Amino acid sequence: MQAFADPTAYKLKVKRPGSDESRELNVDLLETFNWLIGLSVRHIAARQIFNAAFERDSEKRLQLDGRLKQDASGPYWFRTVSGSTPDGRKTLVIWRKLTGEPEQDNLVLDEWFAKQSCSARDSEFDLIYVNGGNNLENLKTPDALWKVRLIEEDFHRLMFEADGV
């Protein structure tokens, strides 16, 4: 869903009761998603903002030209929420701003994920949610047990599908 490309800019058209008039309201996707999955929040991290330069290697694969650099004016940002679901699964939710360049967005996510030592703490989480297409499953070590899910899919299912239908 393109609407989740910038989680801070999500808007919803809300109809005023008793009229045909509607207005756009900002929706706090982070808090709404926590509520939808029943997350008992342990920690909400501050947003981290980065800049990156890219190059192609000899086999035309995209790679970083240098390192991922913290930069308040950078186009890439991440914000995480950790906690547990009602069934006891330790959960990490990764929110990020997508630029519309999936190959770059995913490379930056992979680098950020490795830099955060998430991979070193594989056993800490049972479930990892992330917005936007990604390839985090490919970063799992053989002994890692965590599973990656798309925020958009569960958000849509939990928000808009009626029970028992």
Rank of each mutant, 00 (worst) to 15 (best):
G18F: 13
G18I: 05
G18Q: 02
D20Y: 02
E21Q: 14
E21H: 08
E21G: 09
S22C: 13
S22Q: 15
R23L: 12
R23V: 12
R23N: 09
R23M: 04
E24V: 07
E24M: 11
L25Q: 14
L25T: 14
L25V: 15
N26E: 15
N26C: 15
V27C: 07
V27L: 13
D28E: 06
L29F: 15
L30G: 11
L30C: 10
E31A: 10
E31T: 11
T32C: 05
F33V: 01
F33Q: 02
F33G: 01
N34V: 02
N34I: 01
N34T: 00
W35S: 01
W35D: 02
L36I: 00
I37P: 02
L39C: 01
L39G: 01
L39T: 00
S40R: 14
S40I: 06
V41N: 00
V41E: 04
R42A: 04
R42N: 05
R42W: 04
H43E: 12
H43S: 06
H43P: 01
H43N: 10
I44P: 00
I44M: 07
A45D: 10
A45R: 01
A46H: 05
R47Y: 05
Q48M: 14
Q48S: 12
Q48G: 10
Q48L: 08
I49S: 13
F50P: 04
F54R: 11
F54C: 09
F54Y: 09
E55A: 09
R56H: 12
D57M: 07
D57H: 07
E59T: 14
E59P: 02
E59R: 15
E59Y: 13
K60H: 14
K60C: 13
R61W: 06
L62G: 08
L62T: 06
L62H: 04
Q63C: 12
L64C: 08
D65K: 15
G66H: 07
G66Q: 12
G66V: 12
R67Y: 15
R67H: 12
R67M: 11
L68W: 13
K69Y: 07
Q70L: 11
Q70D: 08
D71A: 12
A72R: 05
S73P: 03
G74F: 09
G74N: 08
P75V: 06
Y76R: 11
F78R: 05
F78C: 14
R79S: 04
T80K: 03
V81H: 01
V81C: 02
V81E: 03
S82W: 01
G83R: 10
S84I: 03
T85I: 01
P86I: 05
D87C: 13
D87R: 14
D87W: 09
G88T: 11
G88P: 03
G88Y: 02
K90R: 03
K90D: 06
T91L: 06
T91A: 04
L92N: 01
L92C: 03
L92E: 02
V93Q: 01
V93A: 01
V93C: 00
I94H: 01
I94G: 03
I94D: 00
W95A: 00
K97F: 05
K97Q: 04
K97D: 02
L98M: 09
L98F: 04
L98W: 00
T99Q: 07
T99K: 04
T99S: 08
T99F: 03
T99Y: 04
G100N: 08
